[in-house]
């Protein structure tokens, strides 16, 4: 048990930390409903004018590009990450640990270095300034999210489930399709959602690989901030916050169903 004083101190620290983390979000969300033409805080009045402004063609095309890139990134990351996680969890091969470390490195490498090196690599082979190029770039960071999530589950996965399936008449492939994949699906989904989110909010790689021809959401926001400080940016941020909350809900639901499955 903790004493009353300790409880108070903990409560105070938690509140400060939460305030520190959430205050900017609250400010941005508030400003996005502003009736003013500038980023005033607190706003003089409230309106939906800046959300209406997002309905213009440029912004809509940005949403569409970001959605495309994010979805394809999630898909590619899953296609590469799932087999990779299986290989890392189930087979022993030379440099297995190095591969695992290398995957983590893809998350830690500074984005600017990733952006420049990917640009130098993609430009000569015609992948720079294409949607596919950006998808591949984001997949580099997306794969580790899928692998890390699935690896944790796979290490605790009871191989007897597959054995039971085969003993009772399933071919090895049927066993994976009817038992292994459904049991692991929540973990795969969580990894895919993370891959999508990191793509949707990523700026530097997007700037280098696609920014000169198309404007993914992050790129358009960045340019908006540089040119005019209009509350449209706040409204766009607001939509991203809602997207993140929705993703969080998906993850929470998936994790709940995963917890129900005995490890």
């Amino acid at each position: 048990m903790i004493s009353r004083t300790e409880a108070r101190v903990l409560w105070f620290c938690a509140t400060v930390a939460l305030f520190y983390l959430l205050f900017p979000v609250v400010v941005v969300m508030t400003v996005s409903f502003s009736s003013s033409k500038f980023l005033d805080f607190p706003p003089p009045g409230y309106s939906l004018q800046w959300y209406r402004a997002l309905l213009d063609e440029g912004w809509l095309s940005s949403y569409w590009i970001t959605f495309q890139v994010g979805t394809l990134t999630a898909l590619f990351s899953t296609l590469v990450g799932v087999p990779a996680a299986f290989a890392l969890a189930r087979y022993d091969f030379p440099f297995r640990r190095s591969f695992e470390a290398l995957l983590l490195a893809a998350i830690i490498v500074p984005p600017i270095i990733k952006a420049i090196s990917l640009y130098l690599f993609f430009a000569p082979i015609g992948l720079a300034n294409t949607v596919l190029g950006l998808v591949l770039g984001h997949t580099v960071t997306g794969v580790p999210y899928v692998v890390i999530n699935l690896l944790a589950t796979l290490k605790g996965y009871d191989r007897d489930l597959e054995r039971a399936a085969q003993a009772h008449g399933a071919t090895p492939l049927q066993a994976i399709r009817t038992v292994t994949l459904p049991v692991l699906a929540p973990s795969v989904l969580v990894g895919a959602v993370f891959a999508f989110l990191q793509s949707a909010q990523e700026l530097l790689v997007a700037l280098f690989l696609l920014g000169t021809v198309e404007k993914p959401l992050a790129v358009r926001m960045w340019e908006g901030v540089r040119i005019s400080l209009s509350p449209t940016i706040a409204a766009a941020s607001g939509t991203l916050v809602v997207l993140a909350l929705a993703a969080l809900a998906v993850v929470a639901l998936a994790l709940r169903s995963r917890r129900r499955a005995p490890a």
Binding site: D158, D160, L161, R163, A164, A165, Q166, A167, Q174, P182
Partner: peptide, 20 residues
């Protein structure tokens, strides 16, 4: 002869019931 054609029934220590 693969496992699925050996006409078996099997029980496991971990029960190995399909959780889904």
């Amino acid at each position: 002869v693969p496992t699925h054609r050996r006409r078996l029934g099997m029980m496991f220590q971990s029960y190995a019931l399909f959780p889904h």
